[in-house]
Nucleic acid binder design. Structure first.
Length: 747
DNA sequence: TAAAAAATCGTTTTT
DNA sequence: CGATTTTTTA
């Protein structure tokens, strides 16, 4: 039989622990899988093997962290078995699988299947709105920090009521009020944010035994990828589902846990053996990906972490080349030295598609992009602003969401005057008040526009027309073919007309994006005849930039290290290895955070198969101003025998763009110190005058004679121009010139 | 009410 | 610096 042949061909090539992990069918299993140890291969082959052994595909639940991982899994299962079997497996991200379950069971928790999923931006708009309602100014607390605090509470499974109960400080009490209002408003809008997708699923399972049993029975076999990155709610959901049959298989690597900041708990790996004492433990320690030189270099870094399960990866691969360090005068030159090196690599043997540029923060991509353009290096950036987060796309989606869920106030407010149709601030204010007083949704209040007090007749007519427009197409949702409905509706709203005003390249691009989206919708409708607009909208609301863009073998890939997790490239550049940037510094030094940064660096290094480059710049522009940088401490942690430090720098290579002394880097002419160094001072002497040597550190607490106590959150400038951004307890964030203010340190 | 000008603020990382 | 939000002006 063909399937059997394909399956066992793969299994026969496996090493002993891989085989064991693949073929142990029942009971709890925990796999600690080092980087590049064939984890994905085990997961997919295991699913195929389960099905081969007679398990019904739809009884298998495979949870991943990215859509990409889920799709790759389905693809590889299909290659062993076939598409119809593979497609019946429930493989997807935590968020998408739970959204799917919530849609089915929506009535149970007071929603319906057309609920809206709010992305981060939607959620932030809502928080802004609520802060305004509560007279909390953005000076008191930033909407982002409110969002962050609420999200963190949710990850800790503290709901709004609990939070309010335990709130102590005035800050916490304010957050509690906002949190309560936020949840209230989400519910009114029949919307959920990302965290709610997890929490509501958990609530559903905990509060309704019948439903939990239904899914326990359904998912007889559960697999979880990247287990080290699960957070509390995720763990609880999986535990609830698995406890009935205990056929649970988790794969993870504590050394690659990089989402602690999002609530991930490495201790879930340890908890697992407590919750499932019978768990079989399997370790995958043979690496098939990298050269010995790269693997050992990565090991020399990660062994500095105290908090980890001890292990040592090994490989049969060749020693290979040592890791190369690129030392650049400034960020511009970093870009051109990389470009230069890439040209060389491509001339020798490899394709652009074999190369990846990884960085700590998205902002770093910009300057590298610039030099790639100068050097004509084709590249593709992954991550950052996704297609679906573009303004014009969000506008279209907001109109479409309203057709399905007229309670969705964020979408309504987004487009009610987009394009401008004369519904301004005052009109809206009256309507919102009316809606509140008569306890109806904003949209419903607009249907009764003539009852709203204080409105001009003209405004009433405009509102009624707007409502009528939405309702007309809402009613046609079932009869009219989707492509016809969408194009006609958006034409009538005037949105198409607005974006068709092609008077600039920017507008042309926006219009092209809209066309692309419409095409996508039409394509979706054709290839999924059983699914409707609601399915489409829910699906895309959980997509990331990565899921939209395709890999292209003719282009260099650029992305953050977080985004690169799970990927591999023959050649990898990790950029910006500087103190303060990587490991990133924000607030006081914290052991836990430093270890997470180190794990992130480890993840980056282990993406490389053949060659690894580490780059840093001695000066870098941040917030429009240049700052001195020193090499990252991580660089010094790498075994010196595995490192080439001095080969590549501006001293040895001439570059087109990065020539330090001739190029204008936007230096501030008002800054004599920098100018001096810039002109003639030898590098070494000024190199010691780094900002951190001037006595102030990020996170340090200081007293200002006027504003009182505060914490240093950012600094810029040198010497007499040294400017500190300080978070004062009394007055919030202020910029202080050290030369003028008499700051006092608190020890 | 809408467009233009000014002010502010941000850089972690993402489903 | 560059994007986004708030304020001003017509």
């Amino acid at each position: 039989m063909e399937i059997q042949d394909r399956l066992f061909e793969i299994i026969n090539q496996m090493n002993a622990p891989q085989k064991e992990a693949t073929m142990a069918i029942n009971g709890p299993i925990q796999v600690i899988a080092g980087a590049g140890s064939g984890k994905t291969r085990v997961l997919t082959t295991r699913v195929a093997y389960l099905i081969y052994s007679g398990v019904e595909p739809s009884e298998i639940l495979a949870l991943t962290f990215t859509n990409k991982a889920a799709n790759e899994m389905k693809e590889r299962i299909a290659n062993i078995l076939n598409h119809s079997l593979a497609n019946r497996v429930w493989a997807g991200t935590f968020h998408s699988i739970f959204a799917r379950i919530l849609r089915i069971e929506a009535e149970e928790i007071g929603y319906n299947r057309d609920f809206t999923i709010y992305d981060q931006e939607d959620s932030l708009s809502l928080i802004r709105q609520i802060m305004k309602d509560n007279n909390v100014t953005s000076n008191e607390m930033s909407p982002q920090s409110v969002q962050h605090t609420i999200s963190r509470a949710k990850n800790e499974m503290i709901n709004a009521l609990d939070y309010a109960r335990v709130a102590q400080t005035t800050y916490e009490k304010k957050i509690a009020q906002l949190y309560l209002n936020y949840q209230d408003e989400l519910y009114r809008s029949k919307a959920m944010d990302f965290d709610d997708l997890l929490l509501n699923t958990l609530d559903l399972f905990v509060s309704n035994k019948t439903i939990l049993e239904k899914y326990q029975q359904k998912f007889r076999y559960i697999l979880v990828d990247e287990f080290q990155d699960t957070n509390k709610p995720q763990y609880r959901i999986v535990w609830n589902l698995a406890k009935a049959h205990s056929n649970i298989f988790v794969v993870g690597d504590d050394a690659q846990s990089i989402y602690r900041w999002r609530g991930a708990e490495i201790k879930n790996i340890l908890n697992f053996t407590k919750d499932f004492p019978a768990a079989k433990q399997i370790r995958l320690e043979q690496n098939y990906r990298s050269t010995t030189a790269i693997l050992d270099a990565a090991h020399s870094v990660i062994q500095n972490n105290r908090n980890q399960i001890p292990k040592k990866l090994w490989t049969e691969n060749e020693f290979g080349e040592k890791t190369k360090v690129i030392d650049a005068e400034n960020d511009n030159e970093e870009g051109s030295l990389i470009a230069h090196q890439i040209k060389k690599i491509v001339n020798e043997q490899l394709n652009y598609g074999d190369i990846a540029i990884l960085y700590r923060t998205n902002a770093q991509s910009l300057i590298i992009e610039r030099s790639f353009r100068t050097y004509n290096i084709p590249y593709r950036i992954f991550g950052g602003l996704s297609f679906y987060q573009r303004k014009e796309i969000k506008d279209v989606l907001a109109y479409l969401r309203l057709l399905l869920n007229s309670n969705d106030n964020i979408s309504l407010l987004r487009i009610i005057n987009e394009p401008p149709r004369g519904i301004g601030k005052t009109t809206l204010e009256h309507s919102i008040n009316y809606a509140k007083n008569s306890n109806v949704s904003l949209f419903d209040s607009l249907t009764k526009a003539d009852e709203i007090e204080g409105l001009q007749t003209r405004a009433v007519v405009t509102l009624k027309n707007f409502v009528k427009l939405i309702q007309t197409y809402k009613n046609q949702l079932e009869e009219k073919p989707l492509d016809e409905l969408v194009t006609e509706y958006l034409e009538q709203t005037g949105l198409f007309e607005m974006y068709r005003q092609i008077d600039s390249t920017e507008m042309t691009e926006r219009w092209n994006n809209i066309s692309q989206l419409i095409n996508d919708i039409i394509l979706f409708a054709r290839s999924n005849p059983n699914q409707n607009l609601s399915d489409y909208l829910q699906q895309i609301s959980l997509l990331t930039d990565f899921d939209v863009k395709q890999f292209d073998g003719s282009m260099v890939s650029m992305m953050t290290i977080h985004t690169a997790k799970g990927l591999e490239f023959p050649v990898v550049f990790i950029t910006g290895l500087e103190k303060g940037l990587f490991p990133i510094m924000r607030g006081p030094n914290n052991k836990e955070e430093e270890e997470e940064e180190r794990r992130l660096f480890y993840v980056g290094m282990t993406r490389a198969k053949k060659r690894l480059y580490l780059t840093y710049a001695r000066q870098r522009a941040r917030f429009g101003e240049y700052q001195y940088q020193s090499p990252s401490t991580f660089l010094y942690e790498i075994d010196k025998n595995l490192l080439d430090w001095n080969d590549i720098s501006s001293k040895n290579i001439k570059t087109q763009t990065g020539n330090f002394y001739t190029k204008d880097f936007g230096f501030n002419k008002k800054n004599p110190i920098k100018q001096k160094y810039f002109d003639d001072e030898p590098r070494q002497s000024s190199y010691s005058q780094l900002p951190e040597d001037q006595g102030y550190r990020l996170g340090e607490r200081v007293i200002h004679p006027f504003f009182g106590e505060g914490k240093v959150v950012a600094m810029s400038g040198q010497n007499q121009n040294l400017k500190l951004t300080i978070d004062f307890t009394s007055v919030g964030r202020k910029q202080i010139m050290v030369a003028y203010a008499k700051l006092q340190k608190i020890s």
